[in-house]
Amino acid sequence: MAKLWNKYRYLILRRIVQISLLVLYFGGNAWGLKILRGDLSASKIFNMIPMSDPYAVLQMLAAGAVISADLLLGAAIATLFYMLIGGRAFCSWVCPINMVTDAASYARRVLKIDNIKGTRQPASRNIRYWVLVLSLVVSAIMGLAAFEFISPISMVVRGVVFGIGFGWAAVVVIFLFDLLVLKNGWCGHVCPLGGFYSLIGKFSFIRVHHNEANCTACMKCKVVCPESQVLYMVGKESLPVLSGECTNCARCIEVCDDDALGFSIKSLIKK
C-alpha cells in the first residue's frame, strides 16, 4: 500500500484537487455553497476574492471590451500565482480536460499504440503558440473572445456546473484525437491556454530538478511525461527543468525508482 501511494501520490493529489474544484463549483450553483462560485472563466472565492482566467481577459482586451476592475484583479491574482509559484500547474492540477488526455495517454501505452513502428509525431508542439496568437487576431476581428467561444475546457466546466448539452462530444473528440491521431495532442500541441500558461509558467520558482548522479537512465520518466522534451537532461546532466512547458504534474518524480527527480525551488543566483 505504501508503495502504491509512493508511486501515485501526486497523481492522486492532482485528481483530488481537480475533482474537488468541480464539486465546489457544482455546489456553488446547486447547493448554494459559498466557497467557490462561478466557473474557471471567472469566480468568487468565499464571495469575496475574485479570480478570472487571464487568457480570457487577454482575448477580451483584444476584442476591445472594457475590462472591469474585478476581472483585472482576478486575472492579476491568477497570473501572479502561476508566475511565481505554480508554473504551468493549471494544466495538470486544475484543468478537467487533463483527466481526459491523461486517460488517452494511458490508453495509448496500454494498447501499445506508442510502440507501433512508423508512427511518428507529425505535428510541432509550437502549434499552440500559433493558436494563441491566432485566437487574439480572431478576437480582434470578430469583436469577442474567440477561444472562449469554442474552448472545450470551459465547455466541460460549465457543463458540470450548469448542464452539459452536447458538451460531452468535446470530451469524446479530444480523447479520440489524443488516442488515435496525436500523442499528447490536445494539451501538448494545440491548446492555446496551455501555451499561455507555458509562457507565464517559465518564471515560477517551483521546479522539477534532475539529479544525474542517481539516474540509471531507465527513461520511465520520459515515457509518462506529457511534455517529454522538457526532460532532455535526464541521464545527462544535473539540471532543473526550466522550460515553461513542464506542467509540474510530478509524474516523473513518482515513477522514478532511483530518486533522481524531485521538486526544488529555483535559485535566483545564476551560476
Partner: peptide, 12 residues
C-alpha cells in the same frame, strides 16, 4: 458578447 466572460454568476 465581448464583455461577458461566461462565469454564470448571474445564473447562480
Amino acid at each position: 458578447l465581448r464583455t461577458c466572460i461566461k462565469c454564470g454568476l448571474c445564473v447562480e
